[in-house]
């Protein structure tokens, strides 16, 4: 019972701190939109490349901007040593992990939806025209992708938050874990963003969702079990 109360309280106050600081989400959104803008500019002269490269820039923007949020995930707790008081409270360290993961997932989702909105504008993605049925699967795949991304990211962020060059180490450790996830979304890109009836050699959005869901479950469970080892000295 106390676990649930602590879980919701941790999320609530994490969001309250972020709402007051507005650093993490704002930083991520600005960085993501800038990346997407550069991407759209590079293909603006060759419209036939948009369908191929547009979705790739979309995922790049989310991945690189996401690390900005992940590297800052534990900064508010690190300030004044609040992390020590949280991990010596009578709650399971795994609950702390799940709450932090949910909070960071929300920030990354906000950023991702900002990226999707920017993608619609910058890449002329006709959501009221030929691509009107694409928005829902893209949104679901994006949400699952962010969850798979955030689950190990939060664990690695806790490991690297106090280290010199922690942000770089975080990326070095996180990106290899993202390889299967990136392969899944890239192979699903043509049917996800362009035409769901394309050749079956491309992964269907449904298969991508199922694979991402399975990966999310594996990463969340593994990180839930590992997190206490990371925060307890």
């Amino acid at each position: 019972m106390n676990g649930w109360r602590a879980f919701f309280s941790l999320i609530r106050w994490d969001l309250a701190v972020e709402f007051r600081r507005r650093e993490t989400t704002l930083n991520m959104c600005l960085f993501a939109v800038l990346l997407l803008f550069i991407g759209s500019y590079t293909v603006s002269q060759k419209t036939e490349l948009i369908d191929t490269f547009g979705p790739i820039y979309y995922w790049i923007a989310i991945i690189f901007s996401g690390t900005v949020g992940l590297s800052r995930a534990f900064l508010p707790e690190r300030e004044n040593g609040a992390m020590a008081a949280i991990v010596t409270a009578p709650i399971d360290a795994g609950v702390y992990y799940l709450a932090k993961m949910m909070a960071v997932w929300l920030y990354v989702l906000v950023m991702s939806f900002m990226v999707l909105a920017a993608y619609v504008v910058l890449f002329d993605f006709e959501i009221y025209g030929q691509y009107s049925d694409r928005i829902l699967p893209i949104t679901v795949v994006t949400a699952l992708f962010c969850l798979v991304y955030v689950a190990p990211g939060v664990l690695l962020s806790a490991m690297t938050v106090g280290l010199k060059g922690g942000e770089v180490i975080l990326r070095i450790l996180l990106f290899p874990l993202m390889i299967p996830v990136i392969i899944v979304v890239l192979s699903a890109n043509p049917r996800l963003f362009t035409d769901p009836e394309l050749a079956v050699t491309y992964t269907s959005p449904e298969t991508a969702m199922a694979t991402l869901g399975a990966l999310a479950a594996i990463y969340v469970c593994a990180c839930y079990l590992l997190f206490p080892k990371v925060v307890e000295e």
């Binding site: 106050w13 701190v17 600081r21 004044n80 040593g81 008081a85 010596t88």
Partner: peptide, 16 residues
């Protein structure tokens, strides 16, 4: 426990 550091979250008030 009173640690070396305050463990208070700087952006929140004491009541919070």
């Amino acid at each position: 426990v009173v640690f070396h550091e305050s463990a208070l979250r700087a952006d929140l008030s004491l009541n919070e």
